[in-house]
Design a protein around this nucleic acid. Structure first.
Lengths: 159, 159
DNA sequence: CCTGAAATATCTAAAAG
DNA sequence: CTTTTAGATATTTCAGG
């Protein structure tokens, strides 16, 4: 399941994580590999799921979603079917950018992207107030996205 | 500053957000545009900052980072220079994947990607315990990444 | 596993309607 | 905006070490 990554792979992965449009010839120069080798490795890494997908990161503000809101949700009952139904509703909501099921003081942490507070309030109704299994939720409005992205550290193994 | 997006742009943006490697010819077919028009629009959108960057999303587990941890940090003093110094230290830490400066019960929300709990504990020392301006922090360990990514809703304007 | 070269496919820019 | 053309780039495959 866990594919073994060598130093070449890590160079490639670090580079395409930063800029997915880096040409394979350029990647080859950086890693000291031929473009054919780069191509083969990238395909392997994608097939193995190390590369999950290639994506364009869009500017939320430019698309009319200037507000980032982080929400902690506590549930009443942790019954599996109830949790799954909640997860389904969160996943189905386009304004829920991220959702984590967590252990600790609360049960879910959500990251919302919304047009305005009005839209957020409306979503709290459909997602939280209308759900009997939501015990409480806490709203944190982001004033600044200090660091964002899905970047994974690409350093060597721990040893 | 805010570029005006038409329905064509939104089709293109939604498509490349899902798969940045979709060929422009394919994008043209979906939006009913020529590849030349697609190319022109994509360049414009990138230049205007609507497209922030093209990136490969990597699998954290495959790279040895199986643990996602969410942390709420409360500060002692909100003096600008102290806050900036904290933000700098968070940004500089590769294991801090995301950081939001928030209004509410706490001041920062961080998303960590770590190899194991030991690494997380070590980071709490350098980032929190060793910083006099950190009043408290709360740790939430993610059991499941229900939904993740940086996807922005690409629907039409509110009206 | 690799390289290098050849074959495809894609992208980009220009010209003209 | 479109289409078409043409040339530059990039990707992918294949032969062979």
């Amino acid at each position: 399941m866990t594919i073994k990554l060598d130093a070449y792979d890590r160079i490639l992965l670090a580079a395409i994580q930063q800029d997915a449009r880096t040409a394979q010839s350029e990647l080859g120069e950086r890693a000291n590999l031929s473009t054919a080798a780069v191509n083969r490795r990238l395909k392997l890494l994608a097939g193995a799921g190390v590369i999950e997908r290639y994506t364009a990161r869009l500017n939320p503000k430019a698309l009319g979603y200037p507000l980032t809101i982080i929400v902690e949700v506590a549930v009443e009952n942790e019954r599996a079917d109830l949790l799954q139904e909640m997860q389904r509703s969160f996943k189905a909501c386009p304004q829920v950018q991220q959702c984590y099921y967590v252990a600790g003081e609360c049960d879910f942490v959500l990251v919302f992207l919304v047009r305005d507070m009005e839209q957020y309030v409306a979503l709290t109704h459909t997602l939280f107030h209308d759900n009997d299994n939501v015990k409480a939720f806490k709203t944190l409005v982001a004033m600044d996205r200090v660091k964002y992205g899905m970047d994974v550290p690409v350093d060597g193994p721990p040893g």
